[in-house]
Design a protein around this nucleic acid. Structure first.
Lengths: 172, 172
DNA sequence: CGTGAAACATTAGCGGC
DNA sequence: GCCGCTAATGTTTCACG
């Protein structure tokens, strides 16, 4: 995770891999005009330094029946610690746990939440929620979000159409 | 892209690949208790059916100097077609092009916009924008977004902390 | 679905610029 | 330091049972 110097070849390797993470080292080496061994050494260095966080397959949400994508703005209680004792989810709490800590732990455990940021502005958190349909979403909001002791406000918007979506960062 | 039946083994293969897209077929075959050839046949089928959209390397935005992540809500002009003729970007327009079409084309060309959805609610579009710093963001808003003839309102929020972020869909 | 063999890819060691 | 060669090892892929 230490900071690292990247030259032009490193950046080209990154640009290639963030478009197609399964290219063989040989193929990549060819595209950056290097022989396979130095190319592989560079890739390993990029992996070990943390610049490459990992490799994943991207799946098609629609084909898997996940037809609803929502962005949910959440505001939390700020005054008064949450009640101590054992919560609905079964998580035991120490005294001194904040609402934000409690909420973050809950988010980690909810599979339909695929991303969550603490945000500036008039909302505390922005959640990206991926579910089958509105029935599932409704259950998630009622039974999980609004049921959570720290949550005081929830506002949802739904994606009508995703017309740009890339995991590739603008690095060139 | 045709719809496709997935059995329990297909789902386990998908779950494995969306966590680690570079595992060898042999390794995957072992984990799902299959020999390499039927496992590879299943993976090829998942790729060809479109369930697997592709494989990518995920990069670390911070280590690459992209320290600012913004979500930007955009509203567009709705009455009156955009002026015809050649736009600032150099794109020639036919009469009848809508503001939404014009905006979508611009979004595709802006590298700092890594995602864009048409949304329900009091905003038309939600953009995810990844840039180096506030100076770059400011230039993007002033020179690109607000300069765009169809854009009538822009409201931005900034990520203070991303504490959940996964490309893996909840499929199990 | 599984086996086996050919083709192909990865990777460590070493010498050269 | 960083490159490229070679050779051993491991992986993919396909015809066939």
């Amino acid at each position: 995770m230490a900071n690292i110097e990247l030259d032009a070849i490193d950046r080209r390797i990154l640009a290639i891999l963030q478009e197609n993470g399964r290219l063989s080292n040989q193929e990549i080496a060819e595209r950056v005009n290097l022989s396979p061994s130095p190319c592989l050494r560079r890739i390993r260095r990029l992996e070990e330094s943390g610049v490459i966080r990992g490799y994943v397959a991207l799946l098609d949400a629609k084909l898997l029946g996940l037809d609803l994508l929502a962005y949910v703005n959440v505001r939390l209680e700020k005054r008064g610690g949450p009640a101590t004792g054992v919560q609905a989810g079964g998580t035991p709490l120490r005294a001194g746990t904040t609402h934000a800590q409690l909420f973050r732990a809950a988010v980690q455990a909810w599979p339909e939440v695929v991303a969550c940021h603490a945000m500036t502005g008039d909302t505390d958190f922005l959640l990206r929620v991926q579910v089958e349909d509105m029935a599932h979403f409704s259950r998630f909001v009622q039974d999980q979000l609004l049921h959570h002791p720290s949550v005081i406000d929830v506002r949802s918007s739904f994606s009508l159409d995703t017309f740009k979506e890339t995991t590739a960062l603008p690095i060139l």
